[in-house]
Computed example of a mutant assay.
Amino acid sequence: MNVKSPLYGALISLCFWSGAVQASGPLFQNIQQADANAVETLIEQDASLLEARDSRGNTPLLVAAQMNSVPLVKLLLAKGADPSAMNYKHRDILNTAVSVGNPEIARLALQAGADPTQITSVYEGSALIYATHQAELEIMELLIAAGAPLDRVNNLGWTALLEAVILGDGGEDYVSAVRILLAAGADRDISDKKGKTPLDHARDKGYQALITVLQSPVNE
């Protein structure tokens, strides 16, 4: 097998992560049980456990975030967990904060040095694109303030602005998401792979509120 092939890399990674699970099972078990004292004790005994991986490539920090446990996230970050680590689906803690709908996790991660410019997910997007997709408005604002790229184009050919229109329902939350992006300076003229702009998609879907926002000057 070609050692540079994606399949080879995936197999090697899977072997590594599987071994890590066996070597550090108690830590993940205690995180699942939300036993902060036991988690802290294990990390104090062996700080390298902070970067252990489960079978999905999640670090302890990512598992804690997936559990929506702010106390565990705080503890693990305070102990030195890497806030920019990604699992095998290339999801980081900022993406996870979006998934669980918790701005506090995103805020803690950013304060600890999480990188809002990372290329994440199998779509080669970003936490901001994902937050826009989910209309997580507060997380969007946190990411933008932290320097997230406004106009990254994922491998589907979509920016955050395009994603808000294409995958949104045209409702109030997505109108607000579009307003946030435009106010921050997102380029409304970037088109998708078929040459359609966000405004074109809004017209196709009959999303009148989005049409109005996309046609209006930013300061209105």
Score class of each variant (00 low, 15 high):
N2W: 05
K4E: 15
G9S: 07
A10R: 14
L11W: 15
S18L: 00
Q22L: 15
S24Q: 05
P26R: 03
F28P: 00
F28L: 04
I31W: 06
E40G: 04
E40C: 10
Q45E: 15
E51D: 13
R53A: 13
S55W: 09
R56A: 15
G57T: 07
N58M: 10
Q66R: 10
Q66D: 11
M67S: 04
M67G: 02
S69Y: 06
L72D: 11
V73W: 02
L76T: 11
A78N: 10
A81D: 13
A81W: 08
A85M: 07
N87T: 06
Y88K: 03
H90C: 12
R91M: 13
R91L: 13
D92Y: 01
L94C: 04
L94Y: 02
T96Y: 12
V98E: 00
V98H: 00
N102M: 04
R107D: 09
Q111S: 08
T120A: 07
S121A: 05
E124Y: 12
G125P: 02
S126N: 02
A127R: 00
M140N: 09
A148G: 05
A148Q: 02
D151T: 04
R152G: 04
V153Q: 08
N154K: 04
N154I: 02
N154M: 04
G157A: 06
T159P: 01
A160Y: 08
L161W: 09
L162I: 12
E163D: 10
L167S: 07
G168L: 10
G168H: 07
G171E: 15
G171F: 12
Y174V: 01
S176C: 03
R179Q: 14
L181W: 12
A183K: 13
D187V: 02
I190H: 07
L199R: 10
D204R: 01
I211G: 01
Q215K: 13
S216F: 06
P217N: 11
V218N: 13
N219R: 09
E220H: 09
